[in-house]
Every structure is written in structure tokens, then in C-alpha cells.
Design a protein around this nucleic acid. Structure first.
Lengths: 189, 189
DNA sequence: GAGATAACCTAGAGGCCCTAGGCAGGAGGG
DNA sequence: CCCTCCTGCCTAGGGCCTCTAGGTTATCTC
């Protein structure tokens, strides 16, 4: 019999493709086993349980996202960097909805996903260098920025912007303008 | 035998309590049946399926949220209204995490939940009256506002703000200040 | 070629969703 | 007061999912 040669890498990659097709909450061990042409029980030698699988997927997604953001940010500063960051973020969520959802689960800082999450946080903070904000305003601004971007893509995905003629793309551009404006003139206490 | 007298109202209320305790994705027909001291199959005469249950919960949550927001907005305008709106929103999410998650699912505009969602959208738009924005800037601003608020509470719930000494409350206040500032000086095209 | 190991298998228990069909308690009519 | 009907709840059962235990086979190493 020919062995399927499932490795943990192939398994997680297949899970990433699957979750983008069916949604993160529909990612099951059974469905993944079917896709790999293997019995479901066989996967439990690679993965502890379904939680473990999801955590690994979160780590993959956070790493991929951080890579794309890092690439988008290279050589840019100020508003240019902000727009590149936002677009990298939104494009990833559009291209890989399942992985994006995976990246939002609660992360144990000690886990391998934790370091990817930290890297992500550092990149977000890097954008704000162009806006010269001191602590604690910098932390507040990071949270504000992250909230707006994440909120936008998550509402857009949930279909919240579909019942209106104004396109999500147009509002997105104006939202980035607004973010740039508010970061530039971050209100003093 | 004493009948449990499950009505659709009692059922949805029990589901709301349950989901706040265990999370929206852990809301199952079985668990709800156990809580109502009834067999799971019995609930299918009240509810078509688990999707139907979730949709009814979404309708409940959207209605409750709209009620609270409407109350918070009464007699307020401008930044005062913005802060009240934001706090009503965030407080609801804190007090009722499961219901808040339920309110985020994709809503069919034709369903009863659709009218609650529309009412919600109108209330959001009402806030912007104090900021005198014409279309399409108004729609962009509504989306921006909603994105930031939803993004903030959802990241806060996911634990994204826990790995830093700056409190989520402090950043929240500053985020509302920033929102007020950006709505006041909404950047022209 | 003989372990040793890794990868896969079957069997099975338990949980959840949902359908089909049966039984009993309470309401209304005769 | 009794009969009937309806509603609310029941049991039985199939299908899918998670996960464990323990057995089998392919491949790697010596």
C-alpha cells in the first residue's frame, strides 16, 4: 500500500486550504482526513485534538500575515506605510478568510503562535514611528488602529456593508484617510 | 406528569443565558435541552434547527442592544452622544458576550432580525447628526465608527489588550476622544 | 535481513443534530 | 361528564463528529 506520507506541515497546509474554503468553524478533523485520503483517527498521531489543530492554524496565519505586512511595510513610512499595512491586512483576510478567522482566536503567549503574535504587534507599532507618538498615547493609537482595521474587515466579511450602494472599497480608502488624519493629530489629554 | 411548559420565549431566554455562560459557538440544542430539563428532540417543535436558534438569539441581541443604545442616546448630542453610544455598546458586550457574538452573524434583511439590525443602523447614523456630514461621507463615517467600536470590543474580549500594563479602559476613553476628533474634522476628499 | 519506528488501520464509546412516530395532559364541544 | 383533538414531550434511531486503544504495515537503520 502506498503511504500518504502525511507530515505535520502537509497537514497544516491542507487544513489552511480547507478552512479558507469551508470557514474556520467548519474545519473538522474528519473533513481534513477525507481531504488527505486518510482515516480521521490517523490524524491524531500528528495533532493532539481539534483545538491543537486550530492553534497550529492560528500560528500559520499569524506568521503569514506578519510576513505580508513586513513586506508591505518595507521602505515605506507615514501614510504610505499605513495604507500598505491596511491593504496587506485586508487583502489577506479577503484571500484567506478561514486563516484570518484563525488568527483571531485567543493566543497563549507561551505557545509558538505567541511569538508570531508578538511579531505582529511590533510591526503595528512600527507604523506609528512615522507619527511620533509617545507612551501611553502610542499604545492607545496602536489599539485604535488595530481595532479599526480589524473591525472593518470583520464587518465587511460578515456582510455588514452590502445593503448600501456605497462600495466597501471606497469607504475603505476614506477610512484610511481618516486613520491617517487622526494619527497625525492624535488628540492630547 | 408535570409539563415543563417550554414556550419559544422561555426557550430563547434560556438560550441567551446559556450562550453568555458558555460562548456563542458552544450553544447547542442538547445543552439547552439539559438546562430546560427536557430531551433535545423536544426542542425541535419550537425551533427548526440550530441555525434557527442562533438566528432568534441574534434577533434578541440586536433588539436589546438597540434598546440600550436608544436609551443611552436620549437627550444627548455630539461627543456626549458618541461616548454614551460607545459605552452602551461596550458594556453590553461585556455583560452579554454570547449575545454580542450572536448579534454579529450575517443577518437576512427579510427576517425579523433584519428590522432590529436596521434600527441599529439608524441609531448609529443618528449620532452623526451632531457632526454634520453629507453623503457619501456620512456612510463612510458610520462604517468607520462601527468598525472601530466593534473592533475594539472584539479585540478586548479576545484578550488582545491583556499583555500590556496600559488598561483597556484608559485606551477606550482615548479612542472615543480620537473618534470624536476624526468625526469633527472628517477629512475632505 | 532484523529490529525499530513511524504511519496508518479497525473498532468502538460518547456527543451532537435531526427525523419519525408514539403517548399523555389539558382545552373545548357535545 | 366524557370524548376528541391538539400540543408538548417522549423514545428510537441514523448520521456525523471527536477521540482512545490497540493492532498492522511500510520504511529506515544497522
Amino acid at each position: 500500500m502506498v503511504r500518504a506520507k502525511v507530515t505535520i506541515e502537509r497537514l497544516v497546509n491542507a487544513a489552511a486550504e480547507l478552512t479558507d474554503e469551508v470557514g474556520f468553524d467548519q474545519l473538522t478533523v474528519s473533513a481534513l482526513a477525507r481531504r488527505l485520503d486518510v482515516r480521521d483517527a490517523s490524524l491524531y498521531s500528528h495533532v493532539r485534538n481539534v483545538q491543537d489543530l486550530r492553534m497550529r492554524l492560528a500560528a500559520l496565519a499569524l506568521t503569514e500575515l506578519a510576513d505580508r505586512v513586513a513586506e508591505a511595510l518595507a521602505g515605506r513610512a507615514g501614510k504610505d506605510a499605513l495604507v500598505a499595512f491596511g491593504n496587506a491586512y485586508r487583502d489577506y483576510a479577503k484571500a484567506h478568510p478561514g486563516r484570518y478567522a484563525a488568527a483571531q482566536i485567543e493566543i497563549d503567549p507561551e505557545s509558538p503562535a505567541g511569538s508570531a503574535a508578538r511579531r505582529h504587534a511590533e510591526l503595528t507599532r512600527a507604523i506609528l514611528r512615522g507619527y511620533a507618538l509617545a507612551e501611553p498615547a502610542q499604545t492607545d493609537a496602536v489599539r485604535f488602529l488595530h481595532s479599526t482595521l480589524h473591525g472593518y474587515v470583520s464587518l465587511e466579511r460578515a456582510g455588514g456593508f452590502r445593503h448600501h450602494p456605497r462600495t466597501a472599497d471606497d469607504s475603505w480608502r476614506r477610512s484610511l484617510d481618516a486613520l491617517d488624519a487622526v494619527l497625525t493629530t492624535w488628540p492630547p489629554d
